[in-house]
Design a binder for these strands. Sequence first.
DNA 1: CCTTTTTTGTATCAGTCACTACATTATCCC
DNA 2: GGGATAATGTAGTGACTGATACAAAAAAGG
Lengths: 173, 173
Amino acid sequence: MFHARGYDAVSVADLTAALGIKPPSFYAAFGSKAGLYSRVLERYSESGAIPFAALLRADRPVAVCLAEVLEEAARRYGASADAPGCLVVEGTRSNDPDAQAAACVHHDAAEALIHDYIAARFPEGADRITDFMDTVMAGLSAMARRGHGTERLMASAKMAGRALMREFSEDHA
Amino acid sequence: MFHARGYDAVSVADLTAALGIKPPSFYAAFGSKAGLYSRVLERYSESGAIPFAALLRADRPVAVCLAEVLEEAARRYGASADAPGCLVVEGTRSNDPDAQAAACVHHDAAEALIHDYIAARFPEGADRITDFMDTVMAGLSAMARRGHGTERLMASAKMAGRALMREFSEDHA
DNA sequence: CCTTTTTTGTATCAGTCACTACATTATCCC
DNA sequence: GGGATAATGTAGTGACTGATACAAAAAAGG
């Protein structure tokens, strides 16, 4: 439900109704609405999110791996129309401070993964390229939330991917 | 205030306090919270938003003009830290149906402007390129909201702009 | 100056938010 | 089966949401 409608748009009443439990049981189990969200984020990071560690390989060109991350984002963000976009990216935009902080933890971790991966071989462009990756992924998540399916997202992801290739081939030269 | 904190995060109480008026005067003047937001959007589209009509020129290369739109977005979205991102783009993400609809009107108009501009000279790629423009602009607005300044946004905008050049030069060949 | 109309402030509307005190029911251990 | 413990349902907390009824004050018109 958090993924489908966003943290702010889901009320505790919605959650308890969906779970078939009453508020006291909900708070006994999860502590708070943000507490449940934290656990959902954890689960999402383990299974539903982009597998950065597997995609960012040291034995392949940096630009290729980064482009594959973007394409995987397009695939996952547009996969299910009833849960569009990235749970983490969207969470960082919540109006609730606790939820936002929880989502930022995961986002910052993923961002650091990307940054370090680039920095290992192109330290001078790591900041710039990481920003670009962030921008495109935030954009893809937003477009998914607008209803765009995987095909349309993929076209934009591939375009951004080609921009990455270009960027790295220039750094090489 | 809508631009600074987002439609959902601003309450009528905030608005009446800031305006120095009481709720009845507020509703007499604007009809509703969404009514005021509509007028704010109107004003924003006339003065604060990206001047698409001026930027999308028929006497210059399509890719150059589109790249300039993205750079102008970077400039405006990151200009003031207390009102980051695009009021329209962010408005389309509101949880309030009325506010979202009002923002979508302006967003769709801008999108149509871009689409028609591209379609006039590159009909086969208009959909794809428009999606890419939307994606990057949504991403830039999101990054601005995360606190990135104009310089960082501009770097990503320029990268995306170079991707556009490449795309059009290939279509040419 | 007095009446009429408009604007404003006081106080509050019903509804929803996340969250909890309390009592009852179910479960477990012996 | 009986007593301690844990989980649950009932009901409601205060705070806030957007939006108003009503009356007092201000402005306009003669």
